[in-house]
């Protein structure tokens, strides 16, 4: 791949903080023009990795380039191509939304009038016009996020880092942020997204790197990762607790799968067989249950959770 096809190429990135190795040899190749997901729990090293790629931290070892420019040797060139929306909104809380964007536009070099019109246009595009004159300290989490992302595209970046853009947001705000990310990518900007949610990576990312204790433990398309982990699970809540043992037998026969009883006396979970169609396994299981006269209050067909992905992947590493 040439420089223009590869947005990020990182090899063996390492960063220590005192005694802890926050990042312990991370390799990444992010193709240009896509959303690339970095998935991992708190403390896995996601933020540290992103900060090194965005030239905010100097790696202790290893190297990284952004569109062919080295993050250590040529940070100014990297900075001119990237934008970062950090985990905590990097805005001045005392200032209003409009003032924040005007200030940053001025700092990007826009003249007074141009800065103001750019700021107003961005507020409008992000549905923040009504709050333009309010101090950011009074903004909701979703509004802050939107303003923060707006600040990141004052100049259209070639690569946008979004560090956990939806952590702590309500579902509606999360949907809005996803819409924004899709629009940004459709216009040609590469997005490197970190997240704790498999669902989010699945919805948005073309490729995902799973990172844990400072190392990439798996990499691939969402489909590849999921099939490596299993096909997910069925979770049931029954109407009568005394039907649970019966239900367990029925499910085990119908699916040929492992069925676990939950702590909740009316709930049980069946792990689906990997490689087979999840939806048809689900409807088959439901059919068998109703034929056996078992009353089901609640039925959910879940993708593997991040926990399951991790358990599966870390098991593999140990073996």
């Amino acid at each position: 791949m040439t420089n223009q096809d590869t947005a990020v190429r990182a090899e063996g990135l390492v960063k220590h903080f005192k005694d802890t190795k926050a990042v312990d040899g991370v390799d990444l190749v992010v193709p240009a023009g896509t959303v690339y997901g970095v998935l991992g729990p708190n403390g896995a090293g996601k933020t540290t990795t992103v900060r090194m790629l965005a030239t905010l931290l100097r790696p202790d070892a290893g190297s990284a380039t952004v569109f062919g420019r080295d993050v250590v040797a040529d940070p100014a060139a990297v900075r001119s191509q990237v934008s970062l929306t950090g985990q905590y909104a990097s805005l001045d809380e005392d200032l209003t939304g409009l003032e924040n964007l005007v200030l940053l536009s001025r700092l990007y070099g826009f003249g007074k009038a141009a800065a103001r019109s750019r700021a107003e246009d961005l507020l409008e595009a992000f549905g923040l016009t009504a709050a333009a004159g309010k101090q950011v300290k009074g903004y909701s989490g979703g509004m802050r996020r939107r303003l923060d992302i707006a600040a990141s595209i004052i100049i259209t970046p070639k690569l946008l880092f979004l560090d956990e853009p939806t952590t702590g947001l309500d579902p509606r705000s999360r949907g809005q942020v996803w819409d924004v990310i899709r629009t940004i990518v459709a216009e040609g900007t590469t997005v490197l997204l970190t997240t704790q949610y498999l669902e989010e990576a699945d919805q948005l990312a073309g490729r995902i790197a799973v990172i844990d204790t400072g190392k990439v433990i798996a990499e691939g398309t969402p489909g590849e990762l999921k099939s490596a982990v299993g096909a997910g699970s069925i979770r049931l809540r029954l109407h009568h607790a005394d039907q649970r043992d019966h239900a367990r037998t029925v499910l085990a026969e119908a699916l040929g799968a492992e069925v676990e009883l939950d702590d909740d006396p009316v709930a049980l979970t069946a792990t689906l067989k990997p490689g087979e169609d999840t939806a048809s396994q689900g409807s088959h299981a439901l059919g068998e249950l109703s034929r056996s006269g078992i009353l089901v209050d609640d039925f959910s067909l879940g993708q593997p959770s991040l926990d399951e992905v991790f358990l599966a992947l870390t098991d593999k590493v140990d073996a």
Binding site: Y108, G109, F126, R146, I153, T189
Partner: peptide, 21 residues
């Protein structure tokens, strides 16, 4: 207060890059 995708697209496409201050 919805995200206005069309407007956002326009802003991204404009791709203005003033000189650094």
């Amino acid at each position: 207060a919805q995200i206005e995708k069309e407007r956002l697209r326009g802003l991204l496409a404009a791709g203005e890059r003033p000189q650094a201050p």
